[in-house]
Nucleic acid binder design. Sequence first.
DNA 1: TTGCAAATGTTATGTTATTACATCAATTGC
DNA 2: GCAATTGATGTAATAACATAACATTTGCAA
Lengths: 132, 132
Amino acid sequence: MTTPQLTKNQSLVFDVLEKAEGPLSAYTILDKLRDHGFRAPLQVYRALEKLLEYGVVHRLESINSFVACAHPGDDCHSHGIVAFAICESCGQVMEFHDHEVDHRLMAWVRGQKFKPEKTTIEIRGLCEACAA
Amino acid sequence: MTTPQLTKNQSLVFDVLEKAEGPLSAYTILDKLRDHGFRAPLQVYRALEKLLEYGVVHRLESINSFVACAHPGDDCHSHGIVAFAICESCGQVMEFHDHEVDHRLMAWVRGQKFKPEKTTIEIRGLCEACAA
DNA sequence: TTGCAAATGTTATGTTATTACATCAATTGC
DNA sequence: GCAATTGATGTAATAACATAACATTTGCAA
Protein backbone atom coordinates (compact mmCIF):
# COMPACT_ATOMS: atom_id res chain seq x y z
CA MET A 1 0.00 0.00 0.00
CA THR A 2 1.24 3.46 -0.85
CA THR A 3 0.54 6.24 1.62
CA PRO A 4 -1.73 8.94 0.22
CA GLN A 5 -1.33 12.61 1.01
CA LEU A 6 -2.24 13.11 4.65
CA THR A 7 -5.04 15.46 5.60
CA LYS A 8 -4.51 18.31 8.03
CA ASN A 9 -5.52 16.36 11.12
CA GLN A 10 -3.66 13.27 10.03
CA SER A 11 -0.49 15.31 9.52
CA LEU A 12 -0.79 16.97 12.89
CA VAL A 13 -1.22 13.66 14.69
CA PHE A 14 1.56 12.01 12.72
CA ASP A 15 3.96 14.89 13.43
CA VAL A 16 3.30 14.63 17.15
CA LEU A 17 4.04 10.90 17.07
CA GLU A 18 7.18 11.33 14.99
CA LYS A 19 8.62 13.93 17.32
CA ALA A 20 7.76 11.95 20.44
CA GLU A 21 10.42 10.00 22.30
CA GLY A 22 8.13 7.04 22.77
CA PRO A 23 4.54 5.88 22.41
CA LEU A 24 1.71 8.27 23.23
CA SER A 25 -1.88 7.67 24.26
CA ALA A 26 -4.65 9.20 22.19
CA TYR A 27 -5.45 11.61 24.99
CA THR A 28 -1.85 12.73 25.30
CA ILE A 29 -1.86 13.45 21.59
CA LEU A 30 -5.09 15.37 22.04
CA ASP A 31 -3.51 17.54 24.73
CA LYS A 32 -0.52 18.28 22.53
CA LEU A 33 -2.81 19.43 19.73
CA ARG A 34 -5.17 21.67 21.68
CA ASP A 35 -3.19 24.68 20.51
CA HIS A 36 -3.85 23.59 16.95
CA GLY A 37 -7.57 23.54 17.50
CA PHE A 38 -8.17 19.97 18.59
CA ARG A 39 -11.05 19.76 21.03
CA ALA A 40 -12.30 16.16 21.06
CA PRO A 41 -10.86 12.63 21.27
CA LEU A 42 -12.54 11.67 18.04
CA GLN A 43 -10.36 14.04 16.08
CA VAL A 44 -7.37 12.05 17.26
CA TYR A 45 -8.93 8.62 16.93
CA ARG A 46 -10.10 9.31 13.39
CA ALA A 47 -6.67 10.44 12.30
CA LEU A 48 -5.06 7.44 14.01
CA GLU A 49 -7.44 5.09 12.27
CA LYS A 50 -6.19 6.27 8.90
CA LEU A 51 -2.54 6.37 9.90
CA LEU A 52 -2.82 2.78 11.14
CA GLU A 53 -4.48 1.82 7.88
CA TYR A 54 -1.62 3.40 5.92
CA GLY A 55 0.86 1.53 8.10
CA VAL A 56 2.76 4.64 9.17
CA VAL A 57 1.68 4.28 12.79
CA HIS A 58 1.42 1.24 15.05
CA ARG A 59 -0.88 0.60 17.95
CA LEU A 60 0.62 -0.96 21.06
CA GLU A 61 -2.24 -3.04 22.42
CA SER A 62 -0.71 -3.78 25.77
CA ILE A 63 -0.29 -0.13 26.73
CA ASN A 64 -3.10 1.54 24.78
CA SER A 65 -0.68 3.74 22.94
CA PHE A 66 0.54 4.63 19.50
CA VAL A 67 3.96 5.03 17.86
CA ALA A 68 5.20 6.22 14.50
CA CYS A 69 6.56 3.35 12.43
CA ALA A 70 10.30 2.95 12.80
CA HIS A 71 10.82 2.58 9.04
CA PRO A 72 10.60 6.09 7.66
CA GLY A 73 9.48 6.19 4.07
CA ASP A 74 9.21 2.44 3.98
CA ASP A 75 6.17 0.23 3.86
CA CYS A 76 5.86 -1.68 7.08
CA HIS A 77 3.50 -4.23 5.66
CA SER A 78 6.24 -5.68 3.51
CA HIS A 79 8.17 -6.77 6.59
CA GLY A 80 5.63 -9.27 7.81
CA ILE A 81 4.55 -9.26 11.41
CA VAL A 82 5.90 -6.36 13.43
CA ALA A 83 7.11 -7.07 16.95
CA PHE A 84 7.80 -4.60 19.72
CA ALA A 85 9.93 -4.51 22.83
CA ILE A 86 8.56 -1.95 25.24
CA CYS A 87 10.57 -0.70 28.20
CA GLU A 88 8.26 -0.35 31.19
CA SER A 89 10.66 2.03 32.85
CA CYS A 90 11.60 4.61 30.24
CA GLY A 91 8.83 3.93 27.72
CA GLN A 92 11.25 3.42 24.84
CA VAL A 93 9.99 1.11 22.10
CA MET A 94 12.06 -1.05 19.78
CA GLU A 95 10.43 -2.36 16.64
CA PHE A 96 11.66 -5.48 14.92
CA HIS A 97 10.75 -8.24 12.51
CA ASP A 98 11.60 -11.90 12.49
CA HIS A 99 10.66 -13.94 9.50
CA GLU A 100 11.12 -17.21 11.32
CA VAL A 101 8.62 -16.13 13.98
CA ASP A 102 6.20 -15.13 11.23
CA HIS A 103 6.75 -18.43 9.56
CA ARG A 104 6.07 -20.48 12.70
CA LEU A 105 2.96 -18.52 13.61
CA MET A 106 1.60 -18.72 10.08
CA ALA A 107 2.34 -22.44 9.98
CA TRP A 108 0.31 -22.97 13.15
CA VAL A 109 -2.48 -20.82 11.78
CA ARG A 110 -2.57 -22.80 8.54
CA GLY A 111 -2.77 -26.03 10.48
CA GLN A 112 -5.89 -24.73 12.23
CA LYS A 113 -7.35 -23.25 9.08
CA PHE A 114 -7.50 -20.01 11.03
CA LYS A 115 -7.59 -16.87 8.90
CA PRO A 116 -5.36 -14.22 10.50
CA GLU A 117 -6.17 -10.54 10.11
CA LYS A 118 -3.91 -8.76 12.57
CA THR A 119 -1.16 -10.12 14.78
CA THR A 120 0.24 -8.54 17.90
CA ILE A 121 3.65 -9.34 19.38
CA GLU A 122 4.69 -7.18 22.30
CA ILE A 123 7.44 -7.85 24.80
CA ARG A 124 7.26 -5.73 27.92
CA GLY A 125 10.28 -5.50 30.17
CA LEU A 126 13.34 -3.37 30.76
CA CYS A 127 15.69 -2.00 28.13
CA GLU A 128 19.43 -2.39 28.57
CA ALA A 129 19.86 1.06 30.12
CA CYS A 130 16.99 0.65 32.58
CA ALA A 131 17.87 -2.93 33.57
CA ALA A 132 21.35 -1.92 34.66
CA MET B 1 4.56 -21.56 40.88
CA THR B 2 1.94 -23.66 42.64
CA THR B 3 -1.55 -22.27 42.90
CA PRO B 4 -2.67 -21.55 46.47
CA GLN B 5 -6.19 -22.09 47.71
CA LEU B 6 -8.41 -19.52 46.05
CA THR B 7 -10.37 -17.08 48.15
CA LYS B 8 -14.14 -16.71 47.78
CA ASN B 9 -13.99 -13.91 45.26
CA GLN B 10 -11.17 -15.50 43.33
CA SER B 11 -13.14 -18.75 43.08
CA LEU B 12 -16.25 -16.98 41.91
CA VAL B 13 -14.40 -15.13 39.18
CA PHE B 14 -12.48 -18.21 38.11
CA ASP B 15 -15.66 -20.31 37.92
CA VAL B 16 -17.30 -17.74 35.69
CA LEU B 17 -14.31 -17.77 33.35
CA GLU B 18 -14.10 -21.56 33.29
CA LYS B 19 -17.74 -21.95 32.39
CA ALA B 20 -17.63 -19.24 29.74
CA GLU B 21 -17.47 -20.14 26.06
CA GLY B 22 -14.88 -17.50 25.38
CA PRO B 23 -13.09 -14.51 26.87
CA LEU B 24 -15.01 -12.13 29.11
CA SER B 25 -14.45 -8.50 30.00
CA ALA B 26 -14.11 -7.56 33.65
CA TYR B 27 -17.47 -5.81 33.53
CA THR B 28 -19.18 -8.83 32.00
CA ILE B 29 -17.80 -10.92 34.85
CA LEU B 30 -19.08 -8.31 37.28
CA ASP B 31 -22.57 -8.56 35.83
CA LYS B 32 -22.54 -12.34 36.08
CA LEU B 33 -21.60 -12.09 39.75
CA ARG B 34 -24.08 -9.48 40.91
CA ASP B 35 -26.30 -12.26 42.26
CA HIS B 36 -23.38 -13.41 44.35
CA GLY B 37 -22.97 -10.03 45.94
CA PHE B 38 -20.50 -8.37 43.62
CA ARG B 39 -21.14 -4.64 43.42
CA ALA B 40 -17.96 -2.99 42.14
CA PRO B 41 -15.39 -3.49 39.36
CA LEU B 42 -12.61 -3.64 41.89
CA GLN B 43 -13.89 -6.90 43.29
CA VAL B 44 -13.37 -8.40 39.86
CA TYR B 45 -10.07 -6.71 39.07
CA ARG B 46 -8.57 -7.72 42.39
CA ALA B 47 -9.52 -11.34 41.89
CA LEU B 48 -8.23 -11.28 38.31
CA GLU B 49 -4.93 -9.82 39.46
CA LYS B 50 -4.32 -12.85 41.66
CA LEU B 51 -5.58 -15.35 39.11
CA LEU B 52 -3.23 -13.88 36.52
CA GLU B 53 -0.41 -14.07 39.02
CA TYR B 54 -1.17 -17.76 39.65
CA GLY B 55 -1.23 -18.35 35.92
CA VAL B 56 -4.70 -19.87 35.85
CA VAL B 57 -6.15 -17.00 33.86
CA HIS B 58 -4.80 -15.08 30.87
CA ARG B 59 -5.40 -11.53 29.85
CA LEU B 60 -6.03 -10.86 26.17
CA GLU B 61 -4.53 -7.43 25.67
CA SER B 62 -5.95 -6.80 22.26
CA ILE B 63 -9.55 -7.24 23.35
CA ASN B 64 -9.37 -6.20 27.01
CA SER B 65 -10.69 -9.54 28.14
CA PHE B 66 -9.80 -12.54 30.24
CA VAL B 67 -9.87 -16.32 29.72
CA ALA B 68 -9.28 -19.32 31.91
CA CYS B 69 -6.04 -21.08 31.01
CA ALA B 70 -6.58 -23.93 28.56
CA HIS B 71 -4.38 -26.29 30.57
CA PRO B 72 -6.50 -27.42 33.49
CA GLY B 73 -4.45 -28.45 36.50
CA ASP B 74 -1.26 -27.63 34.66
CA ASP B 75 1.18 -24.82 35.15
CA CYS B 76 1.10 -22.53 32.18
CA HIS B 77 4.38 -20.91 32.99
CA SER B 78 6.23 -24.09 32.19
CA HIS B 79 5.17 -23.89 28.57
CA GLY B 80 7.02 -20.71 27.77
CA ILE B 81 5.28 -17.89 25.98
CA VAL B 82 1.56 -18.40 25.47
CA ALA B 83 0.06 -17.42 22.15
CA PHE B 84 -3.59 -16.92 21.28
CA ALA B 85 -5.70 -17.04 18.16
CA ILE B 86 -8.86 -15.05 18.69
CA CYS B 87 -11.83 -15.34 16.35
CA GLU B 88 -13.30 -11.89 15.82
CA SER B 89 -16.59 -13.38 14.71
CA CYS B 90 -17.48 -16.01 17.32
CA GLY B 91 -15.11 -14.94 20.07
CA GLN B 92 -13.55 -18.38 20.39
CA VAL B 93 -9.97 -18.42 21.61
CA MET B 94 -7.31 -21.01 20.89
CA GLU B 95 -4.27 -21.11 23.12
CA PHE B 96 -0.98 -22.53 21.91
CA HIS B 97 2.74 -22.62 22.49
CA ASP B 98 5.63 -22.72 20.08
CA HIS B 99 9.09 -23.20 21.45
CA GLU B 100 10.74 -22.07 18.26
CA VAL B 101 8.87 -18.77 18.43
CA ASP B 102 9.94 -18.38 22.06
CA HIS B 103 13.47 -19.18 21.08
CA ARG B 104 13.60 -16.63 18.30
CA LEU B 105 12.06 -13.86 20.39
CA MET B 106 14.34 -14.58 23.33
CA ALA B 107 17.35 -14.63 21.00
CA TRP B 108 16.45 -11.19 19.73
CA VAL B 109 15.90 -9.96 23.26
CA ARG B 110 19.27 -11.29 24.38
CA GLY B 111 20.97 -9.55 21.49
CA GLN B 112 19.50 -6.25 22.69
CA LYS B 113 20.20 -6.98 26.35
CA PHE B 114 16.51 -6.35 26.88
CA LYS B 115 15.06 -7.95 30.00
CA PRO B 116 11.61 -9.37 29.16
CA GLU B 117 8.90 -9.53 31.82
CA LYS B 118 5.74 -10.36 29.96
CA THR B 119 5.20 -11.23 26.33
CA THR B 120 1.98 -10.99 24.37
CA ILE B 121 1.26 -12.88 21.17
CA GLU B 122 -2.27 -12.53 19.86
CA ILE B 123 -3.55 -13.37 16.39
CA ARG B 124 -6.93 -11.90 15.59
CA GLY B 125 -8.87 -13.22 12.64
CA LEU B 126 -11.48 -15.81 11.77
CA CYS B 127 -11.62 -19.40 12.97
CA GLU B 128 -12.20 -22.19 10.50
CA ALA B 129 -15.95 -22.30 11.13
CA CYS B 130 -16.43 -18.55 10.81
CA ALA B 131 -14.16 -18.14 7.78
CA ALA B 132 -16.21 -20.64 5.77
C1' DT C 1 -23.63 23.37 -10.14
C1' DT C 2 -25.09 19.63 -8.33
C1' DG C 3 -24.14 15.57 -6.19
C1' DC C 4 -21.24 12.58 -3.75
C1' DA C 5 -17.63 10.90 -0.70
C1' DA C 6 -14.40 11.97 2.71
C1' DA C 7 -13.01 14.74 6.39
C1' DT C 8 -14.13 17.48 10.21
C1' DG C 9 -16.59 19.46 14.37
C1' DT C 10 -19.30 18.76 18.58
C1' DT C 11 -21.85 16.62 22.24
C1' DA C 12 -22.82 12.92 24.67
C1' DT C 13 -22.12 8.47 26.17
C1' DG C 14 -20.11 3.91 26.67
C1' DT C 15 -16.33 0.98 28.29
C1' DT C 16 -12.23 -0.20 30.88
C1' DA C 17 -9.35 0.50 34.98
C1' DT C 18 -7.56 2.68 39.25
C1' DT C 19 -7.28 5.68 43.57
C1' DA C 20 -8.49 6.37 48.10
C1' DC C 21 -10.25 5.05 52.16
C1' DA C 22 -12.75 2.03 55.47
C1' DT C 23 -13.55 -2.53 57.37
C1' DC C 24 -12.89 -7.34 58.37
C1' DA C 25 -10.48 -11.76 59.14
C1' DA C 26 -6.50 -14.67 59.90
C1' DT C 27 -1.88 -14.96 61.71
C1' DT C 28 2.16 -13.80 64.33
C1' DG C 29 4.99 -12.21 68.09
C1' DC C 30 5.04 -10.69 72.64
C1' DG D 1 -4.66 -12.87 75.87
C1' DC D 2 -4.01 -9.17 72.73
C1' DA D 3 -1.58 -5.62 70.01
C1' DA D 4 0.48 -5.64 65.46
C1' DT D 5 0.72 -6.98 60.98
C1' DT D 6 -0.89 -8.75 56.69
C1' DG D 7 -4.12 -9.95 53.13
C1' DA D 8 -8.83 -9.88 51.56
C1' DT D 9 -12.92 -7.33 51.03
C1' DG D 10 -16.46 -3.41 50.51
C1' DT D 11 -17.71 1.12 48.64
C1' DA D 12 -17.55 5.50 46.33
C1' DA D 13 -15.51 8.33 43.31
C1' DT D 14 -12.84 9.23 39.48
C1' DA D 15 -9.46 8.53 35.79
C1' DA D 16 -8.35 6.77 31.30
C1' DC D 17 -9.64 4.90 26.93
C1' DA D 18 -12.95 4.65 23.04
C1' DT D 19 -17.17 5.17 20.17
C1' DA D 20 -22.09 6.64 18.72
C1' DA D 21 -24.85 9.93 16.67
C1' DC D 22 -25.55 13.82 14.18
C1' DA D 23 -24.40 18.24 11.91
C1' DT D 24 -21.35 20.69 8.84
C1' DT D 25 -17.70 21.48 5.60
C1' DT D 26 -14.58 20.46 1.89
C1' DG D 27 -12.78 18.64 -2.40
C1' DC D 28 -13.75 16.89 -6.53
C1' DA D 29 -15.87 14.73 -10.38
C1' DA D 30 -20.06 14.02 -13.36
